[in-house]
């Protein structure tokens, strides 16, 4: 797969290096840094293709995986990634209920540091929690998802997967369909895709899009420096028309309890990704989903298994991207991976 970073001449740019101590969100990354993650992921994919998919790059490094929310997929993905790099992995399943028992996040981070953590991969149900952890931890924090806010490794693996099929995503129509309001995946993808010049469309029922229309309006004339604008709509057919990528998001039952939607049935009828709807997209449009899927709700079972569905590939690329992120945060250089 792809070109070897060691043989690709890269133009030397003064700011082309990795400058992040932590990875809290993709909004902090320059386009150069995003490209660097992509190149490093290429190298990690090469490692994964070997009979023994393991390099000693992080030998002696303690990676603590601290999850305040249950998420087997993401936790295992990080764990496999860290082990492939020969890191010592410690898993901690914390619960936010321990907060009420008196152990604060700050106490926990200090304890984890005292126990030898060099890096913490953190998942937390509260937006911004990794920023607090980063203030007290002397090592690196890698945000594995915080509240509604950010899920940078997911956005970068999504981008990697798109690029593997489409080449450059610049000008490509990418649709994110689903519960945008409560989605850290959507927010992080918004930064990485607009930074990469994609033609991004966010599509959801109006109750699950609140605030995004104003954000899109704000960015219409050029948003954050270097970022493209994006579109917001509740018209699924308009969103899907000639799309190159369609990513469906998980819909949670709590949205009905909160009075945001009448019913799952109605959501699936109006906003579910079906073959009929997908017919409006380009014939080779990629189908993506960050998982876990509610088949029959936000995505029809026969769509998830289409040839153009790259949902399982997202999972595989997830390991490679997370290896790349752990490696870069530990101070590694992409050119050195194959010799590491």
């Amino acid at each position: 797969m792809s070109t070897s970073p060691t043989t690709t001449p890269t133009p030397t740019q003064p700011d082309a290096g990795w400058r992040q101590k932590h990875l809290l969100d993709v909004d902090a990354l320059s386009l150069d840094e995003i490209q660097l993650v992509m190149r490093t992921t290429d190298a990690m994919k090469e490692v994964l293709s070997r009979p023994i998919a393991k390099v000693p790059a992080l030998r002696g490094t303690n990676v603590t995986i601290l999850f305040y929310e249950a998420s087997t997929r993401t936790r295992v993905s990080f764990e496999v990634a860290a082990k492939n790099l020969s890191a010592d992995v410690v898993n901690i399943a914390a619960s936010t209920s321990s907060v009420t028992k008196g152990e604060s996040l700050v106490d926990t981070i200090r304890t984890v540091e005292a126990l030898g953590a060099d890096m913490i991969v953190m998942r937390h149900g509260t937006s911004g929690a990794p920023y607090l952890a980063a203030e007290v931890f002397s090592g690196s924090i890698l945000n594995g998802g915080d509240g509604w806010h950010a899920h940078p490794s997911q956005a970068l693996l999504d981008l990697y997967t798109m690029r593997a099929h489409l080449g450059d995503v610049r000008g490509k129509k990418v649709v994110i369909l689903g519960d945008i309001l409560h989605s850290r995946v959507a927010r992080s993808n918004l930064w990485s895709l607009t930074a990469s010049g994609a033609d991004l469309w966010l599509c959801a029922p109006s109750t699950l899009l609140r605030g995004f229309d104003a954000w899109a309006g704000r960015w219409a004339g050029g948003g954050a420096p270097g970022h493209a604008g994006f579109h917001v709509t509740s018209d699924v057919d308009a969103a899907l028309r000639d799309a190159d990528v369609v990513m469906a998001l998980r819909l949670q039952r709590e949205r009905m309890d909160a009075g945001l939607l009448p019913s799952l049935r109605e959501y699936s009828a109006r906003f579910g990704l079906t073959r009929e709807r997908l017919a409006g997209a380009r014939p080779d449009a990629l189908v993506m989903h960050p998982g876990p899927m509610n088949e029959g709700v936000e995505i029809a079972p026969d769509v998830a298994i289409l040839d153009r569905s790259v949902i399982t590939e997202q999972v595989t690329n997830g390991v490679a991207v997370r290896m790349a992120l752990l490696y870069l945060l530990a101070g590694g250089h992409p050119e050195a991976v194959t010799n590491a």
Binding site: S127, G128, G147, W148, H149, A150, R187, R210, G211, A214
Partner: peptide, 10 residues
């Protein structure tokens, strides 16, 4: 409620 809360996921 506004741009900041939307972007920060609050």
């Amino acid at each position: 409620e506004g741009l900041v809360a939307t972007i920060l996921g609050l």
